[in-house]
């Protein structure tokens, strides 16, 4: 399946775009999503290793699955406040 991943801050800067397309096997886990982002978008390899992943606006761990048609975002360490 193909998913869109929203990018913010330095990730958006490094990719030069607000979202990327990532090809994933069906029933992929978040860990596999991280690997796919790093392989398919090499400029994001380092920040992906340090970022959180959010699915449908909620932080998820590496074992979670990536449902089709979900809203996925790469969340670099936050600096609000």
């Amino acid at each position: 399946m193909n998913v869109e991943v929203k990018l913010f801050a330095v990730a958006k800067q490094l990719s030069g775009t607000e979202s990327i397309s990532v090809e994933l096997p069906a029933d992929a886990t978040v860990e596999e999503l991280r690997e796919a982002i790093s392989e398919q978008h090499a400029e994001l390899r380092d920040i992906t290793a340090r970022a959180m992943i959010a699915i449908n606006a909620e932080y998820v761990n590496n074992k979670a699955s990536v449902p089709a048609d979900s809203e996925i975002a790469l969340i670099p360490p936050v600096s609000g406040g």
Binding site: V78, S79, G80, G81
Partner: peptide
């Protein structure tokens, strides 16, 4: 807020 809210 500074730890978890996605603002940069």
């Amino acid at each position: 807020l500074k730890e978890v809210v996605p603002i940069w």
